[in-house]
């Protein structure tokens, strides 16, 4: 059973393969309910969300719900791991945790389905994806990377197994994305960055941070153990990390997943911006 709903301002699709149609519908409804809880709690558009209350000074972080406190903690951690490129405080000085909440919520939704005993399913929230098991034909789930210049097209097919996939992007060259680290005001010319990571939360947060790094973002992903990336620039040219192509080959059978294959890849923990030299 496959269902799509618009929640958190984006289409969210859940598909479960297999029997027990009735309980599937119930479980999918629970997943959507979860997403609408997340929206109510973290929305920067809904006045009554906890995040808005924090922004108005009506709620102290230590009095906020556990989930909100956790997200702030995770955001702080991510900021440290990306040398400040990931920051939930936006340029107007207000907290906007949406860059980290989405992947986190998808991962939790996947856990809901996993705990309910489902084996073959996926959750796709606005193009950030985590799948489990195999598809309707018993084959590995396939994910297309959208052409940033033509939304009807895909430019790459990947088989992420149970890893998470997230894409950060923008659809036009000349946008004003400022690199917070570059005082010269360089404008990045990256239009799309797809990241495959250990799970969708990891893929999403590092896709967001690496996208803000501009061209250096793909080098950041390259040096991040357990992650692969596919970056498309404004010249319609793609650059991929060294292990990315493992995911473009369809694995044999339904239950075979790509495993870590980072031999030969520099397993150096990356902190900070990549120096061009």
């Amino acid at each position: 059973m496959k269902q799509t709903r618009i929640l958190m301002g984006m289409p969210i699709t859940v598909e479960i393969i297999g029997d027990r149609i009735d309980s599937q519908a119930l479980e999918i409804a629970r997943v959507f309910e979860y997403f609408s809880y997340v929206d109510k709690t973290f929305s920067t558009y809904k006045d009554l969300s906890e995040v808005m209350k924090i922004n108005r000074g009506e709620l102290k972080l230590e009095n906020a719900s556990q989930d909100v406190q956790q997200i702030f903690k995770l955001a702080e951690q991510t900021k440290g791991e990306t040398d400040g490129y990931f920051d939930i405080v936006n340029r107007k000085g207000i907290f906007d945790p949406s860059g980290i909440v989405k992947g986190w919520a998808i991962r939790n939704a996947v856990d809901i389905l996993r705990r309910a005993g489902y084996v073959n399913f996926y959750v796709d929230a606005g193009g950030d994806i985590q799948a489990h098991g195999s598809n309707r034909e018993g084959k590995p789930w396939s994910v297309g990377i959208k052409n940033p210049f033509n939304q009807q097209e895909i430019v790459k097919v990947i088989y992420p197994g149970e890893k998470g996939v997230a894409t950060s992007g923008t659809y036009i060259r000349g946008q004003h994305i400022y690199d917070p680290k570059d005082k010269s005001g360089e404008i990045t010319d990256i239009v799309s960055l797809t990241v495959i990571g250990p799970d969708v939360y990891e893929a999403d947060r590092f896709a967001t941070a690496a996208f803000a790094m501009g061209k250096k973002g793909i080098e950041f992903i390259e040096k991040l153990p357990g992650f692969e990336g596919y970056m498309i620039d404004a010249n319609a040219l793609a650059t991929m990390t060294t292990g990315f192509e493992v995911y473009t080959e369809r694995p044999l059978g339904g239950a075979v997943f790509p495993t870590a294959k980072h031999e030969g890849k520099i397993l150096r923990r990356q902190k900070g911006a990549v120096d061009a030299s």
């Binding site: 301002g9 984006m10 289409p11 699709t13 598909e15 949406s98 996926y122 796709d124 606005g126 193009g127 950030d128 994806i129 799948a131 598809n135 789930w141 396939s142 994910v143 297309g144 990377i145 959208k146 052409n147 940033p148 033509n150 939304q151 097209e153 895909i154 430019v155 790459k156 097919v157 996939v165 997230a166 894409t167 950060s168 992007g169 923008t170 659809y171 946008q175 994305i177 799309s192 797809t194 996208f211 793909i218 080098e219 390259e222 498309i232 319609a236 040219l237 793609a238 650059t239 991929m240 990390t241 060294t242 192509e245």
Partner: peptide
Amino acid sequence: ALKSEAIAAQSAKVDMVSGATATSQA
């Protein structure tokens, strides 16, 4: 160090599509 290629439309049928959403802030 990294491999590059010109992007080209694929005709393959896929289960899901990953891309930035039109509603994203960016």
